[in-house]
Design a protein around this nucleic acid. Structure first.
Lengths: 271, 271
DNA sequence: ACTATTTATTACCCATGGGTAATATACGGG
DNA sequence: CCCGTATATTACCCATGGGTAATAAATAGT
């Protein structure tokens, strides 16, 4: 508990037992164990954000401590305050980066040509892929209420921009006939919600790449409101990898039913 | 700060300025200001859960304190420990109630008759409506990592039951021809994700009732994978077996996929 | 080298909030 | 009316973790 860090760290951290003069990975901390810290300020600031967003996602904002963030960067907590005012500002910056990325998606999609449906598909793919990245997940996994009043309003405004892009494309699609008549607001909620949820379950390194998920979702979701049955050739049910690794869906539909029975709201034990 | 509660509360709480002998609302606390506390234990336990789930949803689990929960019930924090071992157990019980409710949905849906698509629609409606309730929101707004190891496993198991119900119905629908060929796993993620997100944005008292949202979502989402354009303009899904199995194939080669370029990860500035 | 500035470190502060101990009050049964 | 049990209350404990003050080490300029 006492020694967060030995003064001259005679003993190396040894979580990476190799020559310490070079970082073992390109995504490592720019603070090499002790000496040779001469990188530019902005690089360090971004490194803090990378470490923070990872930790916030891994552990959750409230369980991740600034000591944890600092330790991952080979520094100590007060050093973080050279770059940020406090924990909530770090959180806000994660969000800001996410919003910059999504704003790029919207801008490029809007700049392109095509029907409302085309643009909706394009945005869906880009947004879905963003949801498989750390800063994309920031947009949907963190809690607005952890921000200061001012920053919260900023984020809410950015969130509204995203929602409006989806709605506008849907409305445009209805107008140009590429999208079934529907309520743009609810349809946007349905699509964006599905995409946002990717940020909750997707884990890189699984059997699916972010791009594959994005394309599959774009088909599945837009087909729901596309006028006319866009029937893909065989869609890709037996596509690239094998799906049935974790798909023990051979159990029949009668699962779970028996156990539930009545809602016995007599949950009365304890002690 | 000092006086959480006056010993004999000569001054009434006066947030409800009426005769204090009867609760002003049916959803009020069973602990009337001070005397006449003789209700059954289970009722009080459930009242704690109702207050807790509301507060956890309003403020977030970590910001909501047990003092807050107790205050809302006209009691003090240690009294809660007569009914629960700790904060995380309260959270777990909220989750448990939610899972009982959703297990009922699955059981009733599975017990019914109809094609895979019919069952998928039925479950979608029920699940969507559940997502507009407090205990339904518990399922998607709270964080597994706040639970003890043992309780976390219980919840994860229950979550897997939900996922499998969706997958099974989709797989059954593919088998009986009511659902387009697709990857059941991803399709279930897409649908369930969209529904889960309802728990994040829906607020009772808005312009839409839970039921209306549920029915609209059921149409919007299942149409995405239903084979044949089930063309029901006048939002009246509660019919069974209207899935016209006619396959109006109309080609529409997919575009959109390849167009998404590389996102320039060259974010230069950042203060 | 000397000095100013930046950037890190050690050693704290302290508000928060979950949880507990000791104790008081209500209630039900004899 | 008295006592045992259940259920509340007051008054604490204390681990956690965000944040700060004082200070030391590295860096850049001259």
């Amino acid at each position: 508990m006492g020694n967060i860090r030995a003064p001259f760290r005679s003993q190396c951290d040894n979580s990476h037992a190799m020559d310490a003069r070079f970082p073992p990975s390109s995504t490592e901390s720019p603070w090499l164990p002790f000496e040779s810290r001469r990188r530019a300020r902005d690089e360090k600031r971004e490194a803090v954000l990378r470490a923070a967003v990872q930790l916030f996602l891994e552990q959750g904002y409230h369980r991740a401590t600034l000591n944890d963030v600092a330790k991952r960067l080979n520094i100590t907590k007060p050093a973080l305050y050279n770059y940020f005012r406090g924990k909530d500002e770090i959180l806000f910056e994660c969000w800001s980066i996410g919003h910059e990325l999504v704003d790029e998606c919207i801008a490029e999609t809007s700049a392109g040509v095509g029907s409302g449906l085309d643009k909706l598909r394009k945005l869906t793919i880009r947004y879905a892929e963003l949801m498989t990245t750390d800063y994309g997940k920031s947009l949907v996994r963190f809690d607005l209420r952890d921000l200061s009043e001012h920053n919260r309003k900023t984020v809410q405004t950015a969130k509204r921009r995203i929602d409006r892009a989806f709605r506008d494309y849907i409305a445009a699609g209805i107008a140009d006939g590429s999208v079934k008549p529907c309520d743009p607001k609810l349809a946007a909620f349905a699509i964006a919600g599905s995409l946002n949820w990717i940020g909750h379950w997707f884990q890189p390194g699984g059997e699916l790449t972010g791009r594959a998920v994005a394309e599959e979702f774009a088909i599945r979701l837009t087909d729901g409101i596309a006028k006319g049955t866009t029937r893909k050739k065989a869609d890709k049910p037996p596509r690239k990898g094998n799906a049935s690794r974790e798909d023990r869906s051979e159990h029949h539909t009668r699962t779970a039913a028996g156990a539930a029975g009545q809602s016995k709201r007599t949950r009365g034990r304890l002690r």
